[in-house]
Design a protein around this nucleic acid. Structure first.
Lengths: 204, 204, 204, 204
DNA sequence: CATGAATGAGAGTTCATTCAT
DNA sequence: TATGAATGAACTCTCATTCAT
């Protein structure tokens, strides 16, 4: 019995390896050539498996891109960052934590997020995945906004909604992408963004 | 001779109409479904012409998207804005002018720019057009940056390069897109962006 | 103008030729190997055209089989036969006319009907076409049944419904197919079927 | 040894159960969607077994359909009916017995025969099975025809061959199928068919 | 200038089947 | 015996594009 379980787990592990290899190859190609111009056959070739192994072990083309977004949902760094933010009483510190946290998560999932955003128009499934990913981050930033309102010290006239929007402006996908496109270093960018957000949100 | 010229000019005008109809239909479809998922046949159908007329009067698929970027290059509003900026001696006013100018140009070419950016990965030609469009705007902002440095009153440590980058951060495509996604009004957004850029660039 | 019309009609005629060639080739292959096992590529090859010409000039695979059933709907022989039957006052003659009429129509459309019936289960579209073809013939036989009831001389206890069913039993698709499978000659079969139907329907 | 035999017989019984479950599921799907449109995977799913179990316990796709025809070959009802017919001296009774016998066998194997006939064109193996099934029934009816000739009382000019053909016309697969399609009850149909066959074969 | 007909290339997907366990 | 993983081979269909008119 033990033997059979061991065996079966070996098989399962091997299958999981195959799956990961394929998804990785797909991500690389999607990032390089775009979703629309990447064929499933090319993914299979890059992964070194037969064309149909892509279908049996991952699924169709859209499953390949879904696999990119799935595992980002419960990023431990993001969860931890939100936790620390909620525990903080200092608005400036909260913004710094937000900058650092988004920087770390963004850095870790840079390729996947880029693929999702860049290929939104190529396929409805990608669009859905991109929307979902955006939703997750905006929700987190909205929670940060609520905390900032609780903590106080904001410019007059700012409600939680508006604060959430400004946080998204400075720490959302587009902001980080622009920062990266400008060649800014992750840490430098985080500092600058935190400063700018502070200027926009905190009472002088 | 006169007759022939007249005729040919009528024909030419008619041909130009056909062309514009097709390009418009293409833009609408590209914006709605994305470049990759829009077929030339669909463009022809939407424009009410035969499939081949798309080829004879505009060109292939990439010519359709190129046509979107071409006519934006020498936008008179942009030219006028740059002229007024160069004539101004006040850094704050320069930023306000920049915000207003980019708002107006962006508003006028919103759909075309969106198509270019959103479909960069779908086709190398689109990517090239997007890069070209970006280049144009960044060049203009770099000229503004130079003027700001000339005028003076900037925070210490900022060189023209960095100023150009910050201007792109606040007035570039992504910034405006984020503002629009957040539901911000054009004028309101222009004011807010000008303020933020002032905070980032001008000595207190 | 005349020239252009002529030209365009030449083109149209050529296109119609292409279409007919393709549909014919498809019918031959469907009859020989069955619908499911006949690929569109094989049809194209048999017709001597490019694969996609099948799509542009006829349509998808199901359009090929639909094309077989379409033109049988208003068969002039069938229409003429029904007319003569309605004008006849003799039940025996009506049955003979029915036998001859169905024989002639069946003979002319033998291959098409066979394809439709034999491939009903292979594809919903084929099933629909087969049902439609059956409907047409059964409706015609029901009209014959009504006339028989009007003319009188039937066995007691037979209503128009039942007469229509018996007519279908003797002159329907399956009856003719069985007769053909048995190697019976068309005319011989028509006579025998008319006799049998007379025995089943007419008062002695 | 006893233990091993017991075990192996338990296993064998279990295996036979699995096989029967799979063949049943296949028959249901073939009847519902047709042979060509039923995938082996669908059969496995419907039977609640792994895809490969279909291969290990029954065989490939054509083995599934062969399994439907195999066990019908030596139907005890058919054998018994033939025996009673051969013992009878009355032509009318022979036709009644034939009608009842074919009705009972047909009723019992309705689904299997329908699958075989309806999917002849989908697969050469199915066609072969259908032909074999037809052969069996036609052979039986030919034996009945021989007996009828022996017994006498037939219309003049009918030889055994022709009698066998007429029997097939009235009691063959297509006849029963038409009767069923017309909504006729089994017993009613048997009576009517026997009457019609009598009219066609027996001297008045 | 505009068009109908035809095409070549390629894509995604499904299927029946076989190894290794 | 039964199974999960992987595969090779087709197949249908769509697309961008080009002739000939």
């Amino acid at each position: 019995m033990a033997t059979r379980e061991y065996r079966s787990s070996v098989r399962a592990r091997h299958a999981e390896d195959t799956r990961r290899t394929i998804v990785d190859a797909a991500a690389a190609l999607f990032a390089e050539q775009g979703y629309a111009r990447t064929s499933v056959a090319a993914v299979a070739a890059a992964a070194g498996v037969a064309l149909n192994t892509v279908y049996t072990s991952v699924g169709g083309k859209s499953a390949l891109v879904m696999a990119l977004s799935d595992d980002g949902a419960e990023d431990p760094v993001a969860v931890e960052t939100v936790r620390r933010i909620v525990e903080s009483d200092d608005a400036g510190e909260i913004l710094r934590l937000t900058a650092e946290g988004t920087a770390r998560v963004r850095r870790a999932r840079w390729r996947a997020v880029g693929i999702l955003l860049d290929n939104r128009t190529s396929d409805p499934d990608v669009a859905a995945a991109a929307t979902a990913a955006t939703r997750v981050v905006r929700d987190r930033l909205d929670r940060v906004a609520l905390r900032l309102v609780e903590v106080g010290g904001l410019r007059p006239g700012l409600d939680a909604d508006r604060v959430g929007q400004v946080l998204w402006f400075y720490f959302g996908f587009e902001a980080w992408r622009t920062a990266r496109d400008l060649g800014w270093d992750w840490d430098e960018a985080a500092g600058w963004l935190a400063d700018q957000a502070a200027g926009a949100l905190l009472a002088p």
